[in-house]
């Protein structure tokens, strides 16, 4: 028997490695190029928009009527509409999501857990347009019974379904964060005569704080960008209001309206969607960056 050398001169294997690594970098490149392309498109179209409308008037104007004469390009009504949905859905999803996660991770038996987790995942997998229908045909009529002044299209009903929509994400991310808190810490708490409630609120939640905060921010940013459900349920009335029973329009719903309508491409009306899109992109990006920072900054060191 001859001894096998550690030095090989296998050209074929070498080429194969190169091809594989080339293919992998290519696929990574595609996503980078796409992102850069989107940013360039948004920015270049926005730049031509902002040549005609001052950025101050856009950001602080209180009337959004780009399709009517006299045209007005104040984005505040769209922003306030979006914020109504974001705040409303957060009020629903954040506490319920956190409580669900606490229940799942601390109280639920294994049997209940294996039953509930998939339900949450199904909830997360329902197409958002279905949520829109649900809001329009089920929630809004109920709201109208309770508050007769409710419009058919209204922010509240949309907030509720967006809240339900982002709830699984909050619950599941919080559940992960809570589970990441070492068991030994929990036991340390119990060994000092703490009640389960004290252990949860004073040991586990602080231990999972960064993950919980990040889940909130990601959920909010998801509500911010949510489109179909709000287009369907919240209406198409740019409306600077804090009354959730009124019809409003979000930034995303506006973009849908113009993209699907017969607004000719190239005109200032058409460019508005890029300006609104750029604003949307900027806000969600900022929130995701903050979420990332929070995750790293508050990451507890257990060792």
């Amino acid at each position: 028997m001859t001894e096998r050398s550690v030095v090989t001169d296998n050209k074929q294997a070498h080429i194969k490695e190169k091809v594989i690594s080339g293919l992998l970098s290519l696929s990574a490149l595609i996503s980078v190029v796409t992102t850069v392309g989107i940013i360039i498109l948004l920015l270049s179209e926005s730049v031509s928009f902002f040549k005609e409308v001052s950025i101050i008037k856009f950001l602080f104007g209180t009337r959004w009527e780009p399709l009517l004469e006299p045209k007005s390009f104040g984005v505040l009504p769209l922003l306030s509409g979006t914020m109504l949905i974001v705040v409303g859905s957060a009020i629903i999803a954040i506490p319920m999501g956190l409580l669900t996660a606490i229940y799942l991770s601390q109280y639920a038996s294994d049997r209940v857990r294996t039953f509930l987790k998939p339900i949450l995942e199904i909830l997360a997998g329902i197409p958002t347009i279905v949520y829109g229908y649900f809001a329009l045909t089920f929630i809004s009529p109920i709201l109208k019974q309770v508050f007769p002044s409710t419009h058919i299209f209204n922010a509240l009903s949309a907030s509720i379904v967006v809240g339900i929509m982002i709830l699984p994400m909050v619950a599941s991310l919080c559940d992960d964060a809570i589970r990441a808190v070492p068991n030994t810490l929990k036991q340390g708490g119990y060994a000092l005569g703490a009640t389960p409630f004290e252990v949860i609120t004073q040991v586990i939640i602080p231990g999972a704080f960064s993950g919980i905060m990040a889940s909130f921010i990601l959920a909010v940013s998801r509500a911010f960008g949510e489109t179909m459900a709000v287009t369907l349920a919240a209406g198409a009335t740019p409306n600077l209001t804090v009354n959730p029973l009124e019809s409003i329009q979000t930034m995303t719903a506006y973009i849908v309206q113009v993209s699907l309508g017969d607004t000719p491409a190239g005109g200032i009306e058409y460019q508005t969607i890029f300006a609104v899109g750029a604003l949307l992109f900027f806000v969600t990006l900022t929130m995701n960056v903050i979420a990332n920072r929070v995750m790293h900054h508050f990451r507890e060191v257990y060792e």
Binding site: P182, Q187, G188, A191
Partner: peptide
């Protein structure tokens, strides 16, 4: 009271 194998101070 109890002291565990691995030190487990709270963060």
């Amino acid at each position: 009271g109890m002291v565990f194998q691995k030190p487990n101070p709270f963060p």
